[in-house]
Design a protein around this nucleic acid. Structure first.
Length: 553
RNA sequence: GCCCCUGUAGCUCAGAGGAUAGAGCGUCGGCCUCCGAAGCCGGAAGCCCAGGUUCGAGUCCUGGCAGGGGCACCA
């Protein structure tokens, strides 16, 4: 049950009722906000609606609040409704309402927190979208974790979600990749050739060339660059996929840029833009009149060499997105794409499509700190710490957590040494330990020979400890957190929620023991039920973050 | 020069226009004979500046100041 939503409706009804009998003047009803007061003495929920109505109603806020309360229906989950200066309406829940959250969690299981915002709607989340020219690095990882976490939240909100990866498998970068691979192969064959300035420096291409050399000796020397490009790009793509799988990100669709050429969409898009009068030729290049949509200058679509810029297939790709029937498209971009994202949407508008279903989520950079020094990252220079290296050293769970532990607007300094350190300072373990401690209770319960299902009909009214109730109060917030994540498209909220939940759990664990000589059996059973729900909730929250819920650590 | 992001505790960050601004790290001091101390309990310490909107501003607007990122016929 979403108490805040129900309260919002009930208060709105009370206002209308008061208006009907003349206790309040007529006015258009604004949305009735229900919030959680910081201070528990103000109740479990509060509404400032009377304060906001003061001007409309031309009455004192306190008076309005009193009128609303007088006309308010009293559902059974409310223990108390009161008015507090300067005009808040405070609601207190019954303890029974909090206690039954235990059963709500156990009934819903891994579906707990589910909301219906996106029921029947299709959403797409695009992220990472790195070219298959090198390993996934830490900046792309941030976008990937943000995107995957948002995808999980969108699913929890009822959306049918497609997680998509768009990659450039053609063009100049791929040619350079092929050339690099061929040169490395020739070097292994003993030929005296050197990399050019534009070629990729990374060790991984030497490894790929060596694979070819070991399998085929020098018999491939006559093969064209495109052969090496195809081989390298497939190998690197597979490596990227594997890295992402290791961090628990599995894409539904890998969208190849090349397919936009094969299907003709790129040139169709250009034709259509031309037909609509948004294209002109200058200096031997083809230009997009993006200034018509507020851009500061026009942009080149086709270079004087006849090659399209990256912008042209990007527009075609988003044109296709617009045609694929998504109700919501989320594009996640790193700082290097902040400026270009709007241009693509201008292109889609120029093609006659609305773009209000597309929402771009931007995030700031990740700087990697190792041994107290910043590690500069560049794929071409081959100087980076790849996601794979981090996975080996740190593991998937801490990487995932740290990547969403900050708002996307905030740059992240990822200190490798600190993340490796498995100390009590690490919030990842603090959260996971809550799940481990729950598991420990059930392990111990079985060890002393008790019935593992003895809590089936436990008397939940015995759960009256303030720690238990505070935890359940927080448990009720999960749907609100999911709603916040999908409406704001901000994945970091779940990380903070998880930490807060754990910080309410641990004192409960200390104070509300199950197996203790001084705890009567009926209370043991109620608490066992409580911890069963707590364990389920932590598993659920960790799953929303794409993290594991360990039984032991 | 233009665009974007950010200025909240010593440090790193939350804060959905509302009541006495929250965490973590660090710091100071306590707690293991019964479910994992990777834990718990307690103390000190803070909204960049100036205007404005509002009954009410850390939050919104304008202008400063400071830091980061971006401004290609690269992607």
């Amino acid at each position: 049950m979403r108490v805040n939503k129900e309260l919002s409706v009930i208060v709105a009804q009370a206002i209308e009722k008061a208006q009907a009998v003349g206790a309040l003047p007529q006015f258009a009803l604004p949305e009735v906000a229900i919030e959680r007061p910081r201070d528990l003495s103000h109740g479990d929920y509060a509404s400032p609606v009377a304060l906001r109505l003061a001007r409309l109603a031309r009455m004192a806020p306190m008076k309005i609040a009193e009128v609303i309360v007088a006309h308010l229906e009293r559902p059974s989950f409310l223990a108390d409704v009161s008015v507090a200066a300067p005009g808040f309406i405070n609601f207190r829940l019954t303890t029974a309402c909090l206690q039954q959250v235990v059963e709500e969690i156990l009934t819903a299981g891994m579906d707990y927190g589910r909301i219906h915002l996106g029921d029947g709607k299709k959403a797409q989340v695009e992220c990472v979208s790195a070219n298959p020219t090198g390993p996934i690095h830490i900046g792309r990882t941030r976008g990937g974790v943000m995107g995957d976490t948002l995808a999980r939240a969108l699913r929890a909100a009822g959306y049918d979600v497609t997680l998509e990866y768009y990659y450039n498998d053609a063009g100049r970068q791929i040619t350079l990749l092929g050339e690099t691979t061929k040169i490395r192969y020739q070097q292994l064959c003993g030929q005296n050739v050197e990399l050019g300035a534009d070629h990729y420096r990374g060790q991984y291409i030497i490894d790929i060339a060596r694979e070819l050399y070991e399998k085929h000796g020098d018999s491939l020397l006559g093969k064209p660059v495109s052969f090496f490009a195809d081989y390298a790009k497939d190998r690197i793509s597979a490596m990227q996929k594997e890295s992402l799988r290791r961090i628990n990100i599995v894409f539904d669709v890998y969208y190849r840029e090349q397919s936009l050429y094969e299907s003709g969409r790129v040139w169709q898009a250009l034709e259509e833009l031309e037909k609509r009068g948004y294209v002109y030729r200058k200096d031997n290049a083809v230009w997009f009149r993006s200034t018509a949509f507020g851009d500061e200058k026009d942009r080149v679509l086709v270079k004087s060499t006849g090659e399209p810029t990256y912008r042209m297939p990007d527009i075609a790709y988003h044109w296709h997105k617009a045609q694929r029937g998504f109700d919501l498209v989320v594009d996640i971009f790193g700082p290097d794409h902040h400026a270009t994202a709007p241009q693509v949407l201008m292109g889609v508008q120029a093609l006659g499509y609305r773009t209000d279903f597309v929402r771009t989520v931007l995030h700031q950079i990740v700087t990697l700190i190792k041994d107290g020094q910043e590690v500069k990252m560049s794929t071409r220079a081959g100087t980076f710490v790849a996601l794979d290296d981090l996975l080996d050293e740190v593991g998937a769970d801490p990487i995932r957590y740290f990547m969403i532990s900050r708002s996307g607007n905030s740059p992240i300094e990822f200190d490798v040494n600190l993340a490796i350190e498995q100390s009590d300072k690490n919030p990842v373990y603090y959260i996971q330990n809550a799940h481990v401690r729950c598991a420990g209770i059930f392990r111990r319960w079985a060890e002393v020979g008790k019935d593992p299902n003895a809590d089936q009909n436990a008397d939940l009214s015995l759960l009256t400890n303030e720690h238990e109730l505070a935890f359940l109060r927080k448990a009720m917030e999960l749907p609100d957190v999911i709603e916040l994540m999908v409406t704001q498209l901000e994945p970091h909220h779940i990380a903070f929620y998880a930490y807060e939940l754990a910080s309410l759990f641990h004192p409960t664990y200390e104070n509300c023991r199950v197996l203790h000589s001084e705890v009567p059996e009926s209370l043991q059973l109620a608490r066992l039920r409580f911890y069963r729900a707590a364990k389920m909730l932590f598993a659920r929250v960790l799953d929303l973050m794409g993290m594991s819920a360990p039984e032991v650590m």
